[in-house]
Amino acid sequence: MSLLNIDRVTKRFGGLIAVDNFSARIDEGTITGLIGPNGAGKTTVFNLLTGIYPVDEGDIFLDNQAITNQAPHRIAAAGVARTFQNIRLFKELSVLDNVRIGAHSRGRAGIFGAIFRNGAARREEATIHAKALQLLQEAGLAEYSSELAGNLSYGLQRKLEIVRALAGEPRLLILDEPAAGMNPRETEELMAFVRRLHDRGLTILLIEHDMKLVMSLCQRVIVMDHGQKIAEGPPEEIRTNRAVVEAYLGKEA
């Protein structure tokens, strides 16, 4: 049963076709890697999935429900959470607040709850607080709870972004180059972290340039070039795929 179904999606920017008739299915509980040379359209696919850019043609289904061209906050509420290629934390808010904001779509309290703090609002607040702390604990970030997110080291910021995404209890987690800029030790740690999430049954889709990470972490790999899908399959197969090698190294090689 596929959790995410991308059906012949096309996105144009003026004359440029950034994503060209792209289709993919992501099965529940899998880790899928989306790879391809720079400018292949990977991040654009993510932005289409999360509603940041409108789709020109095609449809996107999450668990058979169309989420095509819905507002980003609705898609998030439907269970798609993401991180960004260039970390986008709420830098001047505390680490804890970042995670609590991540849980926004799981809460309901509004103006009334904020001002009058009725029982329901208080209980919700306590639940969110406890959950956020628990997530931070699991990720080894608890000691930084009250630190401003912008003051964390780069590696921890990347990690915090994932924790923030998790707080929304997503069904699908989308990671845009999670290991970018990390040293080998940090990458190692990150991979262990992502594996733990996978073990718990979370479905993950990630863009990554670190081939070692992709090949060891992902069960399926989708390869894009010039906005199109050029290959798809298990990592072993992708490694030797001719089209993929050509896309990365050029035709002559």
Binding site: R88, L93, I101, I115, E125
Partner: peptide, 28 residues
């Protein structure tokens, strides 16, 4: 009370990074 609530955090998230706020499910 507003500042320290779901509502207040949503507002501050918008100030910090509107796009990220949307991606967290906030109807900015």
């Amino acid at each position: 009370r507003i500042v320290d609530s779901r509502l207040g955090r949503a507002l501050q998230a918008i100030r910090e990074d509107e796009l990220a706020a949307k991606s967290m499910g906030i109807d900015t």
